[in-house]
Design a protein around this nucleic acid. Structure first.
Lengths: 262, 262
DNA sequence: TCTAGTCTGTCCACTTGTGCACACAGTGGA
DNA sequence: TCCACTGTGTGCACAAGTGGACAGACTAGA
């Protein structure tokens, strides 16, 4: 498992069966046993299919969704011409819905399930109540909010100055790191192009150039990565920059040390 | 004064001399008298010159800066090649520093004074203490955090799909709306290009095309807008989308109604 | 008033990316 | 098994944007 996104925690806490019994979301697994106990009665888990909408602009945000395992959610900004542009990916390192707004405000973006999988869900009101009862729980969510902000800032800069080739490589790597899939991304060229906000034919051509360098193979409806390091060389460093911030802000944050010490 | 950014409040509360005596920042002026009283002892105001750095990546965020009057701050994301790319502008409609993170975390972006002017400053710890004492105060800052998030999301999408012409027009309008200056933006072509992350010669050409249509004039080191409506037609709608979210999320929020009712 | 330094306007060759078109390949039903 | 449909690879003409170059305009300061 790669460093960053708090995934390393999986290893550090692997002895703790209580933690392992929780939904496979790093934010939830990062909580101390006492903190998680505050949330547990309100957590439900169910599968969501790809393309399912979690929120549309204007929706009242009432539920926090925690992607688990290979599930992946994405924030889309609707455009005047009907094209939705993707901004950030959220996998099991995080959560979507009311993270910054604390809920009960109209959603600004569309939030959509990109790759199917289980999602843990907690009503915002329950989460907020738990935050009032535990400073450490509140602290972790605030830290995650800051990381999410960093992710969007980086995306903004990335879209301003990096080439489509770099962004394509970055996106594929980011998706794989989050789903845990070692070599495949289930996406058509059209979908990839739309979500990057670029033309389909050019996206095909970029993939073609990667293929020519044996970095990946293409299948109908999916991309098979053959040489991850090669792909990294083609990507911008935006992923790494954000990952470092995650590490710095969430690394060793309470309650991990306490659990390790205890 | 244009709608949005909460600027309309200036009119609605213009009778209240207590409010008028506060720093010219709409977030501070939006607070109820009781809420502002919690903050007032900790507020200092001083001028900052253009290009002054408020935060650099990694800095411990300890002070919230509220741009007042024509002052303007900007979030810059450093790039591997040393170019900083601008992401969002913050003027007297908001504040920078610990808005989402609630402070005491390393800054991710560089925050820089773009246009000089007064800034009100409050130590994050004091602000957080006030939030604990007043739900309504906390609510306003949370709502602003949500608006800021919307602003960044929109920027990300904008950078992905809008042309340099559209983004240039948008930037000029956004800056003018925040400073309150009716027709001028003190910026060289080079600065404008750098902050949009585009080439200088092309930025010059875009400005030249606006000039040819009598939308603006150029001076050495500044841009003079002659036809704001014309400029709006050339801009994307990103500004308006964000402004609507500000209106929706901050409009009529406590304590404004209370004050009006009382 | 002169000078040095910065800013502006424009040229050019080049790269990146668009949008459309079309042949063909893969796939899931009927 | 065949058909309809969606997805893929590629060609082309064109638009958007880059980056370097350079002459001339402005401006601050000696």
């Amino acid at each position: 498992m790669e460093a960053g996104w708090g995934f390393t925690m999986d290893v550090r806490i692997s002895k703790m069966t209580e933690v392992e019994s929780r939904p496979a979301n790093n934010l939830l697994r990062r909580l101390s046993q006492a903190d998680y106990a505050l949330l547990a009665p309100h957590v439900t888990v169910e599968n969501s299919a790809a393309n399912q909408l979690l929120y549309s602009p204007g929706d009242d945000v009432q539920v926090v969704h925690f992607p688990c395992g290979p599930a992946l959610a994405t924030f889309l900004v609707p455009n005047e011409d009907g094209r939705d542009v993707e901004t950030i990916l959220v996998g099991r390192e995080g959560a979507v819905g009311g993270i910054v707004s604390e809920g009960f405000l109209p959603a600004y973006t569309r939030i959509c399930v990109k790759f199917s999988g289980p999602f843990a869900r907690v009503h915002v009101a329950k989460l907020e109540a738990a935050k009032l009862r535990s400073v450490s729980l509140r602290n972790i969510f605030t830290r995650y909010a800051d990381c999410m902000l960093a992710q969007i800032f980086q995306s903004t800069a990335c879209n301003a100055i990096h080439s489509i080739e770099q962004r394509t490589a970055k996106w594929i790597l980011a998706a794989m790191e989050r789903t845990g899939d070692e070599d495949s991304v289930p996406l058509t060229h059209e979908q990839l192009a739309t979500l990057l906000g670029v033309g389909r034919s050019y996206a095909s051509r970029v993939l073609q150039s990667f293929k020519a360098e044996r970095i990946l193979d293409t299948r109908r409806g999916s991309i098979l990565v053959r040489n991850r390091d090669g792909l990294k060389l083609r990507a911008c460093l935006c992923n790494d920059a954000v990952k470092m911030h995650f590490e710095e802000v969430l690394r060793g944050v309470y309650p991990t040390e306490q659990q390790e010490a205890g």
